[in-house]
Each structure stands twice: as structure tokens, then as C-alpha cells.
Simulated scan of single mutants.
Amino acid sequence: MPDHHSTNCRRNAWAVAIAAGLLLALMLLLVPKMGFLLSVLLGAILAIVLGLFLVWAFCNPVDENDAVTYSASSVAQDAAGSASSEEPENPQGTSGAAATSEGVAQAEAQDPLFASSTLEGAMARGSEEPVGSAEFLPAPRDGNADDLKKIKGIGPKLETLLNELGVWHFDQIAAWTARDIAEVDEKLGAFRGRITRDEWVRQARLLARGEETAFSERVDRGELYRGDDDDAV
């Protein structure tokens, strides 16, 4: 079917273009040394160029089917973009807790002494650890207590407190589980958090095997705890 709106638009566009061409020709006739033919030629050129431009710019309606297709395509692209932006950044679906447990497992595989040396490492094993397995003694075995001050983080005051709790030997601390750490930590008062922060379990395992640490060697040389009131380093 003919588009009456488009036809009228083209007619009006060419009318405006012809009028502009005639106006230009008349103005050029007033210019000295501008001949009649040249004025008419320039006016005609302006009319043709302006007419084509006006028809192209204002009289070419967009096909409704094309408009609908373009709109649907734009909506689909926007929806796809939104969906991709909302995808989780972790494509493998690994949760933070799983990643932490995996990191602990790798550290334990590389260094067996890491196992149970921190509360996080012990809790990662969960049900594998016995409940309430800590050993508390009324007195040191054979009357000979280990020098717990060789463990960095335990000074004279903490050593006395641990003795009162029934902890006298390195192997007792070395055997602590996460639940044991939590139980003892509750009784340390102002010193709470020292067990995991200073890694007592890891140090105690070395000392229980008869090995030394850089810190324990300093204690043996008498460089630390020269007075009974010295706090843990």
C-alpha cells in the first residue's frame, strides 16, 4: 500500500529545495558579473542537493518489522549481559570454607607439625579428634617438670598458671586437640589467645622430641626470664 505520509513528505521536501534554489539564483543575479546561466545553474544544483538530503533525512520511514526486530534483539542482548554479570566469580563453585579446609590440608601435607598447631587446623579435621583428650596431672611425672618457658609465649606467670591447671610437660601440650585448646584457653584469663597466636602445639611437639627451637636455645643461654616477674615474650 502507498504511504501517503511519505509521499507528502517528499513533495514538501522538494518544494523547499526548489524554493531555496530559486532564492539563491535570484540573489546571484544581483551580484555584478554573475551571468544568468551561472546563477540558474548554481540554484539548480542547490535545489537538487538540498532536495535529496531532505528526502533522505526526513522521508524514509523505518520499517515497523525492522524496528520490532531491532527492539527484540536489544532486549535479548541486555538480558544476556545482565545474566553474565550476575554469574558468581568462582566458576568452580568452591566455597570459602572449602577453600580454607583445602589450604589447611595442603599445609599439613607439607609440614606435619602444622597439624593441630592452630585452632583452625584442628577444627578442619572435626570429628577425627577425640573429645576431652587433654591430660592434666596433679604433679609432674617423676617430680621433674619440663621448662615450659622454652615455648615462645609462655613466661614465668603463664608457666605457673599452666602448672596449676595440671600442665607440666611438653608432650601434654603437643597432644592438645582443638577442643583441648579451647578448654585451656578459657582458663588463661588475660593470656587468652596465646596458644594459637604463638603456636604452642607446634613448638611443644619439637621440644617433646628432644629438638630445640631458636627461642628455646635463647632460654637455655639465659638470655630471657632473668627475673621471676618477666612476662612471656
Rank of each mutant, 00 (worst) to 15 (best):
H5Y: 14
T7N: 04
A13F: 04
A13N: 08
W14S: 07
W14V: 06
L23E: 15
L23V: 10
M27D: 02
P32L: 00
K33N: 04
M34N: 02
G35E: 01
G35C: 02
F36M: 06
L38E: 04
L38W: 02
G43S: 05
A44V: 15
I48E: 13
V49H: 06
V55Q: 12
V55P: 14
F58Y: 10
F58G: 06
P61L: 14
V62Q: 12
E64D: 07
N65V: 08
Y70I: 07
S71V: 14
S73M: 04
A76H: 09
Q77D: 14
D78E: 15
G81F: 11
A83G: 01
S85M: 02
E87F: 05
P91A: 10
Q92M: 15
Q92F: 15
G93Y: 05
G93S: 05
T94H: 08
T94R: 04
T94D: 08
S95H: 10
T100D: 06
T100G: 05
E102F: 07
V104R: 11
A107K: 13
A107I: 10
P112H: 06
T118F: 00
L119D: 03
M123W: 03
R125S: 01
R125I: 13
S133Q: 03
S133T: 08
A134G: 04
A134I: 08
E135Y: 02
E135A: 03
R141E: 03
D142M: 12
L148S: 03
L148W: 09
L148F: 09
I151P: 00
I151W: 00
I151K: 00
P156E: 09
K157N: 11
L158Y: 04
L161G: 10
L161T: 01
N163F: 12
G166L: 03
H169D: 05
F170L: 05
D171N: 06
D171A: 08
A174P: 01
A174C: 06
A174D: 02
W176L: 02
T177G: 07
A178T: 07
D180I: 10
I181W: 02
A182P: 05
V184N: 03
L188S: 07
G189P: 14
G193P: 05
G193V: 00
W200Y: 01
A204R: 00
G210P: 09
E211C: 15
F215M: 15
F215C: 11
R218A: 13
V219A: 12
V219P: 15
E223F: 11
E223I: 11
G227P: 06
G227V: 04
D231F: 13
D231N: 07
A232T: 09
V233M: 12
